[in-house]
Simulated scan of single mutants.
Amino acid sequence: MIDKNSPIPVYYQLKEDVKRKINQGVWKVGQCIDSERELSENYGVSRMTIRQALGELVQEGILVREKGKGTFVCEPKVKQQDMMSFSEMINKSGRNLVTKVLSFVKISTPEEFQDIFRFEQLYKIDRLRIVDDEVVANEIVYIPCDYCGYLDEEILKGSLYKLLEEFGYKIAYSESALQAILTEDKHKILFNTQENIPLLKSFSKTFTENGKILFLEESIYRSDKFILEVNISMREGKLK
């Protein structure tokens, strides 16, 4: 299984083989995989190599270590790294996405949004995002009625990004504020659970290329099902 003469590093070959076994169901979600000693014997490699491979799988959210118990297969999570729609992200992962529109109404622009939007009316779109039959996110989007053509609930079951591009808008970037929140009864109803679950609340503004705010979004994600990776870099010339 491991070709030590290959230019591909041994730890990487091992890592890919562990992933293959997980995908094939040899080790299922929640199951403890073989110990480091067993893996070392089975693959004929050092335990240091085993640790390196497993360490990367832990960082990628594929495995989790539990002290004194072993290393277990994690439940797959939705992972967002770049600027893309939720629909596009799920499609790329090969998983099944269903969008349920809870409400779609036209409202007078709330006072707290009047400094952002100079329009009298907004569409308020409340949607659940269901991945592989589990509710992962609740999204509430506010967008000026003047920005959109004809909309209905059926259209809103697809990608909002793609829909807005069809109306002539090109989405460039977003600004988000993130907050961990406690589970309330209303969240248990939304996410169809009786348990207290970790939740991540996001408030974001999405902009076009010329800096125009296209829509606002208030979202709540199950943070045990969703990973948001943020890349931060130092701007050149800012450090003296």
Score class of each variant (00 low, 15 high):
L57R: 13
F119C: 03
L228S: 08
K225S: 08
V64F: 14
S40G: 01
S93M: 14
E38A: 13
V29T: 15
K15R: 13
F117L: 06
E165W: 06
K212F: 15
S223P: 07
I107H: 10
V105E: 14
F104L: 02
C74Y: 06
M48R: 15
S40H: 03
E175P: 11
E166Y: 13
K186V: 00
L156E: 09
Q121M: 11
Y221E: 01
K106E: 12
R127M: 00
L128E: 05
F104V: 03
V29C: 08
Q81E: 15
I125G: 07
E111M: 14
R222K: 01
K186H: 14
E165F: 05
Q114H: 09
V18L: 12
T193K: 04
F113L: 06
I33G: 00
V26D: 09
I50S: 04
V73L: 01
I50F: 02
I232R: 13
R222F: 04
S40C: 01
A53E: 03
Q24S: 14
Q59E: 08
L199I: 10
K15H: 03
P110W: 01
D3C: 01
V26R: 12
I213R: 06
I232Q: 13
I220K: 08
T71S: 07
F167W: 15
Q13H: 13
E134H: 10
Q114E: 08
E236T: 15
K19T: 12
I62G: 09
T206F: 08
V18M: 06
F119L: 06
L57C: 03
T208M: 02
Y147N: 12
Y123M: 05
N138H: 15
R51C: 00
P7F: 03
G149Y: 12
Y150W: 09
Y161L: 05
K205G: 07
K69H: 14
K15M: 12
Y11I: 02
I22Q: 05
K170T: 03
D132S: 06
E184D: 05
I90M: 08
I90Y: 13
I33S: 04
E111A: 13
I227S: 14
I50A: 02
S174F: 15
N231T: 02
E217R: 04
Q13N: 03
Y11W: 09
Y12G: 04
I2W: 14
F86K: 12
M83T: 12
K240D: 14
D132E: 09
I8C: 05
F72R: 12
E60R: 12
L54M: 09
D224H: 08
I22R: 07
I155W: 01
E36M: 07
V101M: 11
C145G: 03
I2C: 10
E175H: 10
Q114N: 09
D17P: 00
L239K: 15
D185M: 08
R65L: 00
K124R: 10
E120Y: 04
S40N: 10
S202P: 04
L200A: 10
K186D: 11
G237D: 01
R118A: 04
L39P: 01
N23T: 00
D152R: 05
V230P: 04
S108Y: 10
E111V: 09
V45T: 02
E236Y: 12
R118L: 04
L199S: 02
R47P: 03
N231E: 13
N96D: 07
I8K: 14
G211I: 05
L156N: 11
S204H: 02
I8E: 11
C148F: 09
M84T: 06
R235K: 15
S108T: 06
V18F: 09
S40P: 01
I171Q: 00
N138R: 15
